[in-house]
Design a protein around this nucleic acid. Sequence first.
DNA 1: GCCAACGTTGGC
DNA 2: GCCAACGTTGGC
Length: 145
Amino acid sequence: MKYWLFKSEPFKWSWEMQKAKGEEGEQWDGIRNYLARNNMREMKIGDRGFFYHSNEGLEVVGIVEVCAESHPDTTTDDERWDCVDIKAVCDMPKPVTLKAVKANEKLSKMSLVTSMRLSVQPVTEDEWIEVCRMGGLDGKTLKPL
DNA sequence: GCCAACGTTGGC
DNA sequence: GCCAACGTTGGC
């Protein structure tokens, strides 16, 4: 299983809106960046990701799961752009702020720090476990600590 | 609201 | 295929 991070501006698409979609999930559309798209093309059903609020909040607020692999983005006729569907899995008991991530030596190589503007990022297993721990979750079972 | 970082576009 | 101009993102 691989791990990812999805960024969204809460006033465009918030964690609350994502959760309201429930099991059905929602396509992660609107991505117009090749690197981000390529990351999505690598995703498999069951991969997990962080849901991060940018601009407002600046924190990881929840855990999502990929529920449909890469397919054409229905919001554009441009065939270059694909996207996956994701569904909400659970809240982060304690949201993990960008500040906290930056302050953590173990996360100094995380894309969130090094590639700040990339909207869909890969996360290593070590980073996944560490961020979950900071947020009060067991990264393997996703049960509260 | 500002501005730095960085991705994309388009002329050559 | 290079690179300057431009647009967008996102932290502050």
